[in-house]
């Protein structure tokens, strides 16, 4: 009985706010078929793929200046930016721009202090309820693992960020919703976040919507699997070692069996 109640409540809540959540679903319910994201050319794909550090740094800039107003990145600490080519002082300076709550102090009070490199990225909202209250009932999803939580990964992130459009005539948008053919159900609570020139890149890259979307996708791919380069580098050594070992064992097996066959 209890579970039934829970499920129906879940269903009700899902109807009201669910469309705003990045469900990461392969297929979606309803008549409108969500469009499949187009495959993009990424530097990180394939067994030799590497991070595009410049793009990831630009993506970090877009995240900090635009996305982080609503979206958390709760698996990432400021110290992780060391992996992106920032030095210790730069990381410290970036962290110090944000305030975190610490405490209690000797009087039992909580206090604010500048963030340290060991702190996780500061959350935009204190909790989920506060986030919903500020976002028309929708909960901006955490972005740390988004690139792994959707089957199309970074392609999907790029497609959604560049996919905002005017709704076709046959689409009835919900209150406060925006049209995006790549988002589950084609309606998304998030308004188009990126516009030409939303940020100013210091390396001369033109801040077109496409460029920014691509950089964000690169950045979020890094936040989702920061171990990727290590993994592939070690992987090559392991696989080559095992291939040699297999060959040696095959020769051994042949030798051992040569008297039998």
């Amino acid at each position: 009985m209890d579970i039934g109640k829970r499920l129906s409540r879940a269903a009700a809540i899902a109807v009201v706010t669910g469309l705003a959540l990045l469900g990461g679903t392969t297929t979606d319910v309803g008549a409108s078929e969500t469009e499949h994201p187009e495959a993009q050319d990424w530097k990180f794909t394939g067994p030799f793929g590497k991070f595009d550090i410049a793009a990831i740094q630009r993506g970090l800039q877009v995240y900090l200046e635009v996305c982080s107003a609503c979206h958390s990145l709760n698996q990432i600490a400021y110290r992780n930016l060391l992996d992106l080519g920032f030095n210790a002082d730069e990381v410290k300076a970036i962290a110090a721009e944000y305030e975190v709550t610490d405490g209690p102090d000797d009087n039992g009070d909580m206090f604010e202090r500048p963030a340290r490199p060991s702190d996780k990225f500061v959350l935009p909202f204190a909790n989920e309820k506060a986030a919903r209250a500020s976002n028309n009932g929708a909960f901006p999803t955490d972005l740390s693992l988004l690139a792994k939580a959707h089957p199309a990964g970074p392609d999907y992130i790029f497609a959604v960020l560049t996919g905002f459009d005017d709704p076709p005539d046959d689409v009835e948008l919900g209150d406060g919703m925006n049209y995006n053919p790549y988002f589950s159900g084609k309606q998304i609570a998030m308004a188009q976040p990126l516009f030409e020139g939303s940020v100013e890149y210091s390396d001369g890259t033109k801040a077109t919507v496409e460029n920014m979307a691509r950089d964000v996708a690169n950045f979020l791919h890094w936040t989702a699997e920061p171990e990727m380069e290590d993994r592939k580098r070690i992987g090559w050594k392991v696989v080559l070692f095992l291939l040699v070992l297999s060959a040696l064992l095959y020769a051994t097996k042949r030798k051992v069996w040569s008297s039998v066959h």
Binding site: L248, T252, K255, V256, W257, S258, S259, V260
Partner: peptide
């Protein structure tokens, strides 16, 4: 089975 393989000792041992 006591003498698997008819290879020269040294090559087999090296393997």
């Amino acid at each position: 089975a006591s003498e698997p393989g008819g290879q020269p000792e040294s090559r087999r041992d090296f393997l």
